[in-house]
Design a binder for these strands. Structure first.
Lengths: 148, 148
DNA sequence: TTTGATGCAAATGGTTTGCATCGGG
DNA sequence: CCCGATGCAAACCATTTGCATCAAA
């Protein structure tokens, strides 16, 4: 179930949050750039193109709210700002994908995980932690940058 | 080969960096608390106990320098500040260990990886990235916090 | 003696917040 | 209408930097 304007607005509404034009605009930009791991400021500038009156504070507050509702996740790619992406989940499970970050150009590529869930089990048993999530990042050089 | 005051000072010297009392004090604190993933400010306060004249800027500059020399690594545990730990490596390979972070008390536990290197190969082939490092973090609840 | 290292204070940059106002429900 | 949401500017907080001074080599 992908995130749509409609499903998110329904969730906002059912959680007693108002559906304001600012939130709609921010959501629209976010949906249109779903794969890009945008930062708050990047979202702000995209929003401003069509709605210059929206403030950066509102972008931050909206992103915080959406993260709190579990609609999106705040990510850290060690570039000094937070980036956001949609939480992907099917009925009961978080759908994990991970990230490959190019150390030269900063490009972030996603990939699906196949082995991590079993690793999670092993670790859980060994450490006695109750594991609820994992983050995996690979750092290296993308195809494009390797050619130069 | 664990990091010792001597080995690090040798490295500083051979890289033409000066061995100052401030750097020695910071190193000492870091070595004595090697397992704790301290932040710059935490190191600063520990250093200040014995050497109140050392400034926070010097702590940051020293940590940056040590990271640049590959002696330690800057880590991000999503708590709003960078934390540092020794790079562990045997002769040619980075020695990967990963982290389990308790969402309740913030405790960071390390564990060794066994499966990740093969996953790295799979990903490298699939994405055409030249992978040079990976970060893996598990989030959950530690044994202690689970009992409460 | 030379030049890198330091302390201090000010600057930076991402993010948060107080407050008066606005407007969705 | 009411209270949550917004815009603005100021505050915050980790980190960085400019600069005069100090001291390792």
């Amino acid at each position: 179930m992908p995130h749509t304007m409609e499903s998110i607005c329904r969730k906002l509404h059912s959680s007693d949050y108002r559906i304001t034009p600012q939130r709609q605009t921010i959501l629209k930009v976010f949906i249109e750039n779903a794969s890009k791991h945008l930062s708050a400021e990047e979202i702000y500038y995209l929003v401003k193109e069509k709605h210059p009156e929206v403030s950066l504070a509102t972008v931050y507050r909206t992103l915080d709210l959406l993260a709190e509702l579990g609609i999106l996740q705040k990510m850290n790619f060690n570039d000094g700002r937070s980036r956001y992406e949609f939480t992907e989940q099917d009925n009961q499970h978080l759908h994990h994908h991970h990230h490959m970050i190019c150390l030269r150009c900063g490009k972030v590529t996603e990939f699906e995980d196949i082995l991590l869930d079993s690793l999670e089990d092993v670790i859980a048993k060994r450490t006695n932690f109750k594991i609820v999530d994992h983050h995996v990042k690979f750092f290296g050089f993308c195809e494009n940058c390797r050619r130069q």
